[in-house]
Every structure is written in structure tokens, then in C-alpha cells.
Amino acid sequence: MSRFLPYPLLTASLLVMWLLLNSVSLGHILLGSIIAIAASWAMAALQPDKPRIRNWHLIPVLIGKVLVDIFRSNVAVSGLILKGDRARRTPGFVVIPLTLRDRTALAILACIITATPGTAWVEYHADNGRLLIHVLDLVDRDAWIELIQTRYERLLREIFE
């Protein structure tokens, strides 16, 4: 299994991508499988870090939370833009101490924070675990630290560590 399919998740998603781009038929399933397996062998030659996912059942929870947050902050940010200069905005940087160390989990956290309108990941120092984010409407600094740490960091730690 591990020799033949070094990255089962990558192989499966490549096959799904092939079938979405073409039509679902026996020939395309065969061709897509060959290409996906060959690509995963090529990937194995690069020897990337293999992410270990501990709790699969928490991934839908994470996706749900992210979708809700993206929707809410879309509404919030479009309100801010519509109000324009009349609203008192206080943009600013927040430094957040993180205990998360898994590289895949950090990458996912970066994507979540940046994909949510209103917050952007700026910098992360691996040696002291401090993360610098920029917030468009910074009302309460501690509330943001609390939000990132409890809402996402704990969940990502449960999934990956």
C-alpha cells in the first residue's frame, strides 16, 4: 500500500480532478488512475513532509466554521467599505502567540486567516511561535487573540497533533 500509493489523498484528488475535467467513463477512470498514480510517485521522489491527520471527523467541523466565518466577515467588510470614510475604522496589527507547531496545520491556519476578509496573515516566526496578523477593524486586541486561539488553533491541534 505505502510503496504503491505513497500519497493516497493526493492520488484520489488528482483522479477526481481528472474526472471533473473530462467525463466519467471507464476509460477516463483508467487513464486518470494511471496519471494520478504516476504523479504521486513523482511526488514521492520530492519527499515532502507527510501530514498526519489524527481526527478525520473534525474536518467537516472546521470547514463549517470557516464557511460561517467567511460569510460573516464578507457582510462585515462590505459594510465597512460602504460606510467609507464616515465610519471610524481602526486598522492595526496584532501579535498572537501560537503553540501550534505542525507545518501543515500552520499552512491551513494561514489560508483560513487570509481567506477571511478583514484579517490577513503577515508574518510568522518559527523560533518563538509568534504570528503577526493585520486586522481591518481592530476594536479589541485581546478578543482577536482569544478568537484565533480558541476558535481555530485548538481545533487544528486536535486534528493534526
Binding site: I70, F71, N74, S78, I81, T114, A115, G118, A120, H134
Partner: peptide
């Protein structure tokens, strides 16, 4: 300004 394009790419 970094926050603005994410509105178009998510919602």
C-alpha cells in the same frame, strides 16, 4: 488594501 480583494475571491 490587502483585505479588499478577498471579498471578491471568497464571496
Amino acid at each position: 488594501r490587502v483585505h479588499a480583494p478577498t471579498l471578491g475571491t471568497t464571496g
